[in-house]
Amino acid sequence: MMVTILFYIFAAVAIGGAIGVVLARNPVGSLLYMVATLGAIAATFVLLEAHFLAAIQIIVYAGAIMVLFMFVIMLLNLGHDYQGDFKVGFYTTISLVVTGAIAGVIRSNLLGVQGLEGTGAEAIGVAVQEFGVVGAIARPLYTTYVVPFEITGILLLVAIVGAVALAKRNVT
């Protein structure tokens, strides 16, 4: 019961923060709302028994990616002399229609879904008992998903090289 109440509180914070991200006039404000949203999502991860992912969410998203965004905003000096950047008129209408259609599709698929049942939670509980919180996720990562894992390493290397090459001045 307690868990459910906490889940609703953090879900409300996440949704409020997400609305703030989209509607905030100042990019820095947008970013701070995003940090709040990510923190609330990390809390919902904890409530959904994904403790390791909650920690990673805080460290990687709120810690690294958001700081990267903040660096770029400050580097480009976007924090002040801000003019409104909402598309107005026709575009807003089309955007509302498109997002409404997506929301309608999701709603029609989720409506009437009650009491989803599965053995996943118990399996995760057993794995956590046996290998610990990190071991439970590390074991499939290094056995079943070892090839995608290595490819991810290559992806990160390519991203590093690409980011440096793009951001460097006077690359021919």
């Binding site: 998203y61 996943g120 499939p140 998903y145 991810t152 980011a163 793009l166 951001a167």
Partner: peptide, 29 residues
């Protein structure tokens, strides 16, 4: 969904986060 079908969902979240980090770095560049 990992609460329904097992730990694989959490492994996927791991990959999504990695790709998001790479994408943020390149996109901001």
């Amino acid at each position: 969904f990992s609460n329904l079908y097992g730990i694989d969902g959490q492994v996927f979240v791991f990959f999504v986060m990695t790709v998001a980090a790479a994408e943020a770095a390149v996109g901001l560049a």
